[in-house]
Design a protein around this nucleic acid. Structure first.
Ligand SMILES: NC(=O)c1ccc[n+]([C@@H]2O[C@H](COP(=O)([O-])OP(=O)(O)OC[C@H]3O[C@@H](n4cnc5c(N)ncnc54)[C@H](O)[C@@H]3O)[C@@H](O)[C@H]2O)c1
Ligand SMILES: NC(=O)c1ccc[n+]([C@@H]2O[C@H](COP(=O)([O-])OP(=O)(O)OC[C@H]3O[C@@H](n4cnc5c(N)ncnc54)[C@H](O)[C@@H]3O)[C@@H](O)[C@H]2O)c1
Lengths: 248, 248
DNA sequence: ACGAGTTTGTTCTCCAGTTCACAAACTCCT
DNA sequence: AGGAGTTTGTGAACTGGAGAACAAACTCGT
């Protein structure tokens, strides 16, 4: 792999201008950042299938996006393709993984080992995607007897020690909504600066802390809205040609 | 509640122009549709706390958005506020629920009753948000002995009968990625027209079918990207003032 | 009844992101 | 070596959404 490594000569090379004062990194649009993991997944699937090279068209199809968008997204990372040929699957996969920051594992803590917390803790897929679950925390004493996925559930008061010990930057909240803000505050105090929130609440965090939310009810309600619209627009159940946007 | 019902006189009333040929409904931007459930949640919380009236400012704070954006979003539904006063919480809550289509419950099937499927089936919150789980399906025979959350797990071959019987429009896929496309195809054939996909694959569906995906690994990877950026931009662990956008 | 104060609904401006379209760059065949 | 064919990378037009700002519309106190 990596036949063309990064042709240093030629035109401009804007990889790391590091003049003192400028932020060095060329800034990637947020919409692109959100798609890079999808490309990474598609490339991994292609690599597993034995494909060594692919065109932007093929990769775009696999990722479920427009090929022009894909090319523009990749152009923010650099020129990793070869005109007339396409992209080296393994090389591009590595470059994206490096850009995202998942070439080595990130330690993660999960708080709230109930229904959802158990499922997350038992999920093996995180490991291969750049994450390692290092601690499971729960406030309920009866939970703390349990061992889930090879880890003993710890009391939430151990959060500071565990976060410090494993240098945890990313925390997952899977507690009831009522507890989420308090848990969030404690995590931030302990040193966590990125939070994935499953509880249906808006979390307030200090600047410098990232929050992303996953709310299944919201997703279902968005589907319900469009579903209602379909039913309303096409009263005849025979054939109703209404526009519906893909969103996979 | 509902002090001002919908003042029919006055200016223009663009609620239902139903001229034959025009699509009747005034079209709500997709970005707004995605936020309506958040407003609904915030209003429910306010109502539970005993609040009867709120301003756009208060509601915006509760929902974690800009108040101008909130007002513009609500304006797509109609004029449900009163200038100088604000919004009637209960009334607005109902109007949004009606717009989304969750004034009555939507029947839902879940396919793949593994780690995640169990958690979803046991989650009680769907009911109060407009959804009723009517069937749990799994291909593995040993799963079909089980009873989860009061429902016996059914074989996937019963999908057609169950979807037809309960008039199911929404399906949830919680199977491994390898099975997801096949499961999706079968669901669509059975009559499902909206799919929530937890498997890390892009699903291909015919026009008229909506797909939304939830991918935890992608969410974590987006956090990892920003986390890496923070670490890179601020090498001194003391105090690094870098911009980070909220996203709750 | 009227003016001061409040808050909505909407218009206008601006920006990020998407899509098109094509020159540049590469391969392969003759 | 040169030309035909392929595919990338990107400039430019276009689209949708975000935010500021303000007039219209309401309440309340006098
Ligand atoms: N289960 C699902 O499929 C699902 C779906 C959508 C949303 N959610 C949301 O995910 C969250 C968890 O759902 P669940 O079904 O796992 O709930 P659960 O009640 O089964 O589990 C919650 C766990 O959090 C623990 N907890 C409570 N307060 C805590 C605190 N202050 N500190 C630490 N731990 C604490 C509890 O002891 C319990 O073990 C909820 O907010 C729920 O709304 C869950
Ligand atoms: N568990 C998590 O927290 C988590 C997190 C992120 C993503 N996911 C994704 O969610 C999906 C489910 O995860 P999981 O941990 O529950 O997996 P799991 O292996 O525990 O469960 C999968 C279930 O699907 C059933 N199944 C397999 N093929 C089927 C088919 N053709 N028809 C019907 N049922 C079939 C299996 O019998 C099994 O019960 C996976 O795609 C996974 O990548 C899970």
């Amino acid at each position: 792999m990596s036949a063309t490594r990064r042709r240093a000569p030629g035109g401009r090379d804007e990889s790391r201008p590091h003049e003192p004062g400028t932020p060095a990194t060329p800034v990637i649009p947020e919409a692109t950042v959100a798609r890079l993991p999808v490309y990474l997944r598609a490339l991994t699937a292609l690599a597993d299938a034995g494909t060594t090279t692919c065109s932007s068209e093929e990769l775009a199809t696999a990722a479920g996006v427009n090929s022009a968008k894909l090319r523009k997204d990749l152009s923010y990372l650099g020129s990793y393709g070869t005109r007339g040929v396409g992209y080296d699957v393994e090389y591009l996969r590595y470059q994206i993984a490096r850009e995202i920051g998942v070439t080595q594992d990130w330690p993660v803590v999960i708080v709230g080992i109930g229904n959802l917390g158990h499922a997350l803790a038992n999920f093996s897929g995180f490991r291969s995607r750049g994450f390692r679950i290092v601690a499971l925390l729960d406030a309920a004493p009866e939970r703390q007897q349990e061992e889930v996925a090879g880890l003993r559930v710890r009391g939430f008061d151990e959060v500071d020690a565990l976060v410090a010990e494993h240098q945890v930057a990313i925390g997952v909240i899977a507690t009831p909504a009522a507890a989420a803000q308090a848990v969030c505050d404690r995590l931030v105090t302990a040193g966590v600066t990125s939070i994935l929130n499953f509880a249906p609440t808006v979390l307030a965090v200090p600047e410098g802390v990232d929050v992303r939310k996953v709310d299944l009810s919201i997703e279902l309600q968005i589907l319900a809205y469009h579903e209602q619209r379909k039913a309303h627009a096409a009263p005849i159940p025979g054939e109703g040609l209404d526009r519906v946007e893909e969103s996979a």
